[in-house]
Amino acid sequence: MTPRSWLYVPGHRTERVAKALTAGADVVVVDLEDAVPAEQKTTARETAVRLAAEGSPVWIRVNDPAGPWGEADVDALAGLGVAGLRLPRSADPALVREVGTRADLPLQLLIESAAGLARATELATAHPLVAGLGLGEADLAADLRVTGDEGLAWARGWVVVAARAAGLPSPVQSVYTDVADLDGLRASTRRARDTGFVGRSVIHPRQIPVVHEIFTPSAAEVAAAQAVLDAAARAQERGEAAVLDGNGRFVDPAVVRRARLVLDLHHPSEPSPGGTS
């Protein structure tokens, strides 16, 4: 199923990790990178390995795999029972191929620089285990020297195109850093949904209900989607590729794909490995 919320939690704060696992997010992402001070990197990595040994279906954001911390993270988690790895600062397809081969786990690539953005289509197809693209917007904005949110609009559109062109899930929107501003989160998340993102990373449990509100279809949307699939099934039985449904709406394969996404979001309890920061 398609996840709506991806909750980050610092890996060295074991008490927070335990709470995050029961906070109601569709996916938990244990962070070994930005939220973890240098002196706690080993502790965070040990937490991730323990969760893997327990079979916990978490994602792990490792450190930059081009550096020693990231190399150690990948080596420690390679082949273990986590859902996958989020790779920060992704910009080099060759490095992604190396990590994919070493880790043997699904990879979500966080694009956080102009160099990474320029190679987004190459990154998306760098290794069969690449499961999603996304933006790390704070770092990307700094690298691009944009001063307002509108300066990232084209980058967001480009990562949506790069992901979908590679057959990957729609990207997961980056975090909204003002935890207290739930109205701003709601408006930002609605824009993300309308421009091709599905789901959002969050940094506090209080953000989860807002993200779920935006990405959970209404009862009317669910009913309409089911009607589309029913009409398509009847058309298939008659050997037709497109048909008008009972309300006079044209139903073709593209409309069916959209209806299936609506129903996936209506039943998000079994996350699929797509999407990211």
Rank of each mutant, 00 (worst) to 15 (best):
V36A: 05
R97W: 04
A52P: 07
E46W: 00
E46P: 00
A83L: 07
P65L: 09
N63M: 06
V82D: 01
V62Y: 02
R97A: 15
L51R: 01
E98T: 14
A91N: 03
P93Y: 05
G67T: 14
R45H: 09
E54T: 06
A25K: 02
P68N: 04
A25M: 06
W69S: 11
V36Q: 02
V36F: 08
I60A: 09
S90V: 10
V29G: 06
V28R: 00
G67M: 12
G79I: 11
L85W: 02
V29D: 03
P57E: 08
D64T: 06
P93F: 12
G79R: 00
V82H: 01
A35D: 03
E98G: 04
P65C: 07
L95C: 06
P68L: 13
P37E: 07
D75C: 02
G55A: 06
D34G: 10
L51N: 04
V58P: 05
G84C: 13
A66N: 03
K41E: 09
V28Y: 02
D26S: 06
E39P: 01
V27G: 04
T42L: 13
A72V: 08
A78Q: 03
T47D: 03
A66G: 15
A94I: 04
G70T: 10
A91W: 05
L87C: 09
L80F: 00
E98Q: 14
R45E: 11
A66I: 03
L80Q: 15
W69F: 14
P65Q: 06
L32K: 01
D34L: 09
V27M: 06
L77T: 09
S90G: 13
E98K: 10
V36C: 10
P57H: 04
L85A: 08
A83H: 05
V82F: 04
V28I: 14
R86T: 10
V62R: 01
A35M: 09
P65S: 11
A35V: 08
E71M: 07
E71C: 08
P88D: 06
P93A: 11
W69H: 15
R86C: 10
V58I: 15
Q40L: 13
L32V: 08
A76Y: 04
R97K: 14
W59C: 09
N63G: 15
D75I: 13
A94L: 13
P65R: 00
A52M: 05
P88W: 04
V29L: 12
E98M: 06
E39A: 14
A91S: 15
L80H: 13
E71V: 12
V30S: 11
